[in-house]
Every structure is written in structure tokens, then in C-alpha cells.
């Protein structure tokens, strides 16, 4: 029970307050005199709620919003970067302005006839050891073809948006790419004049391949910064593709001269590659 000892109510004071309340309510209903007080309280309530919300909830929600928008931006940035790289690779072969091919006739013919005598696929980089690439002889990387199909891409040329980077040397995904700079790799090259041919071997150094030849056999004089092209003789790489430029000429003896060619492309420049089969 609520109360142990008897209590007595004050009838008169209750009656007074009840009469007072009744007067107030009648006065309010008939004249709306307390409307200003109600409005003031309402505005105070709204202002207080706004201030409390600004102080307590807003900072937390803004942090959350910032984190969320940052994550969205990172995702969007990655997506756009991938799409851009893919479009670079896609457009690289077909662009009339690029210097991938020495003679643009092949591309022009392709445009005119709308038929290509080659196919290419886009591949995603899966693995490349940069330390190995910088230091050691074995220069390999692994790629995976996006939108895999039944076409055989064994021994296909691999390129990025700067030029050739190597060739595929296995038949199963992920495909192993033997880079041009691997010491086991050899690419037939030539000069623009078609008066000098050579097999350039990988140097084991990043971006450098070396061509050793007998200067007595070739009349053409080698100069620094001369552009070197693929000769297409090996059957792996198409003819007349820019490979690199002569960086250094070393006369070993009267029967041997080595020229170091600095490649235009590097496998570390991008994550997406084109795999070209012709």
C-alpha cells in the first residue's frame, strides 16, 4: 500500500487551484492569450534540438559521411583508372597517331578493310617481382587474360601502352611472360633503314637489351639515340614495332660491338597489358 499512516487532503486549497485552472483553460480557449508563450517555447525547443544536434550528432555523422565518401571516391578512382588503362591499351593498336608500328599502312589497311589480321586480348597483371626485375637475370611476370576465350595465346607478344614488354611462354593461366630484358630472351631487331639486323638479348638489367654484332659484316654506322624496331623474323613479334633507342655503343674488339638499347616500355608502368597474336 502507498501510505501507512492516514493522510488528509486540503479541500479548500485544492478547490482554489481547480478553480484557477478552470479559469486559465477557459481564458486560453476563448482568447488564445497564451499562444505567444507556446510559440516561444516551441522556438526554444527547436533551437535547443538544433544546437544539441549540431554539437553531438553532427560531428559524428559528418565523420561517418566523410569516411564513406572517401571510400566511394577511392573505389571510383580505381574503377576509372582501370577503365582508362584498358581504353589506352584498346586504342593503342588502332590509333593512327601512335608510333607502335613503324609503317602505318597495316593500321590504315585495317581501318579501310575493317578486318584485322591479328587479334589481341587485355590481360591483368597478377605478379611481378620488382626487386628481381631491378637486380637479377630472371625477368618474368604473370598475367591473367580478362574475358578468357579459346584462342591459343602461347608465344603471343605482350605490350602495354608504351610498347612491347615480352612474350607468353606457357599455355595455362596465369600466363608467364618472358620479358625482353630476361637474359634468356632474344628478339630480332633492325634499324629503320632495313640495312642492319641483329638478335638483341636481354641484359638482366631493367629496360636494357643488348645486341652484339660483328661490325665488319654491317655497313650501317650505329649512332646513339637511333630508334630500333622489331624485324619480325622470329615470328613472335610483328614487324616494324618500335622497341627502343640506342643508349650506348661498346666496341669490345675489332670483331664485336655491343649496343645497349634502352626500351621504350617497362612492365612496371601499368597493370593492364595487351596480348597480341598475329
Amino acid at each position: 500500500m502507498a501510505r501507512i499512516s492516514p493522510t488528509f487532503s486540503k479541500k479548500i486549497s485544492f478547490s482554489l487551484f481547480i478553480i484557477l485552472s478552470t479559469c486559465i483553460i477557459i481564458f486560453d480557449i476563448t482568447s488564445s492569450s497564451f499562444q505567444d508563450i507556446r510559440n516561444s517555447f516551441k522556438s526554444f525547443k527547436i533551437s535547443s534540438a538544433y544546437v544539441i544536434k549540431t554539437i553531438s550528432i553532427e560531428p559524428i555523422s559528418s565523420i561517418k559521411q566523410k569516411l564513406k565518401s572517401k571510400n566511394n571516391l577511392i573505389k571510383e578512382n580505381k574503377y576509372l583508372k582501370d577503365a582508362l588503362e584498358k581504353s589506352y591499351i584498346d586504342n593503342y593498336l588502332l590509333s593512327r597517331e601512335n608510333s607502335f608500328f613503324k609503317d602505318h599502312e597495316m593500321i590504315n589497311d585495317s581501318f579501310i578493310s575493317s578486318e584485322y589480321n591479328f587479334f589481341y586480348k587485355i590481360a591483368q597483371l597478377k605478379s611481378l617481382d620488382p626487386n628481381m626485375y631491378k637486380c637479377c637475370d630472371k625477368h618474368r611476370m604473370f598475367v591473367e587474360i580478362i574475358e578468357e576465350s579459346n584462342n591459343d595465346i602461347y608465344q603471343s607478344a605482350v605490350f602495354n601502352n608504351l610498347g612491347l614488354v615480352g612474350q607468353i611462354i606457357n599455355k595455362k593461366s596465369p600466363y608467364e611472360v618472358l620479358l625482353l630484358t630476361d637474359i634468356n630472351h632474344s628478339i630480332p631487331i633492325k634499324t629503320e633503314s632495313d640495312e642492319f639486323f641483329c638478335n638483341a638479348k636481354g641484359s638482366g638489367r631493367s629496360d636494357i637489351i643488348i645486341c652484339s654484332f660483328n661490325p665488319l659484316m654491317w655497313d650501317e654506322e650505329m649512332k646513339l639515340e637511333t630508334t630500333i624496331f622489331s624485324s619480325g623474323l622470329g615470328g613472335i613479334y610483328p614487324r616494324n614495332i618500335e622497341i627502343g633507342a640506342i643508349k650506348q655503343i661498346i666496341n669490345v674488339d675489332s670483331n664485336q660491338t655491343d649496343i645497349e638499347i634502352e626500351l621504350f616500355s617497362s612492365p612496371m608502368e601499368s597493370d593492364l597489358f595487351g596480348v597480341l597474336k598475329f
Partner: peptide, 27 residues
Amino acid sequence: DLISESYFGLHALIFCVVTYIINIYAN
């Protein structure tokens, strides 16, 4: 009355009456 935005005196009247009734019946 103020915080519930009803007519002034409405709850005051009811609460006074109810308090009186409960006080009467408290024992």
C-alpha cells in the same frame, strides 16, 4: 501543458482533480 502544447490549465486542472481524488482514497 507547456511542453505538450495543449491548452494552458488543462493538465493543471486534471492533475489537481486527480491528486485530490487519490489523496482521498489514499487510505
